[in-house]
Write a protein that binds this DNA or RNA. Structure first.
Lengths: 118, 118
DNA sequence: ACCTCCCTCAACCATTCGGTTGACGATGAC
DNA sequence: GTCATCGTCAACCGAATGGTTGAGGGAGGT
């Protein structure tokens, strides 16, 4: 599985999104993170492993009780992907709008529409 | 499942991300969309249903061969969530940096660190 | 009317996911 | 050294996912 898929997959689960949200307020140990949930510590540990493999989270060290840390930079991978295609779509809409405006203006068919299949 | 979870889940699959990418270039029928993949048409139809339930895609009509259309606005839901927490994290780093800078400057302990648990 | 093509529905299958419980390993307090 | 506490590993389970095949339904061409 590629990094982008792992990122989207990691944030699919509401519990994991909540963990990310809480980590924006500061590092925390696994126990602290697990406390609020009606769920076993092992389950939270698994969630953290998923976040870690997605690159969203890192451990300060291998030691006991070492805090979990949020790696916010990888968000850019997702926003990059999203923005790219959102921008494309908007650009297309803009072109479509101007085309429709032109068609309303005069009924000249000189300019060919977007593509042959449009 | 909430909308945000459906969105992230929908974009987890590379095939679905590719479908979205292709739809930024214009509407297309199911057949056209399915053609490039080494996969049955039914599978692509399922993928489109997932994208549709996530709100990323809509059908022009119930009719035969009606084109599939990309709904780019819902991207904002995701970017909204992501940006919110990325911003929080960056803000925290900024505060941490200024704190560390202050500690390097003079060794005064007058200002208490971020939080009691930090 | 008929036939064909496009698409979806339904059933099935293997794999993954999100949770549990139980056992274990390492740390740190005493 | 001993013991409790914290965290992970492993096995298991039910539900969801991503794919298949087969059948069916509806629009259009002739």
């Amino acid at each position: 599985m590629d990094q982008l898929s792992r990122l989207f997959a990691a944030l699919t689960d509401p519990t994991r999104r909540d963990l990310v949200a809480r980590l924006t307020e500061g590092d925390a140990t696994v126990g602290e993170l697990a406390a609020p949930y009606d769920m076993s510590v092992q389950a939270v540990s698994k969630h953290l492993k998923v976040l870690e493999q997605a690159g969203l989270v890192s451990r300060a060290g291998p030691a006991h009780r070492s805090p979990v840390h949020l790696e916010a930079e990888v968000f850019d991978l997702m926003t990059g992907w999203i923005e790219r295609y959102r921008r494309c779509a908007e650009e297309r809409y803009r072109r479509l709008d101007t085309l429709l405006a032109a068609m309303n203006e005069g009924t000249s068919n000189d300019e060919q529409p977007l593509e042959e299949t449009a």
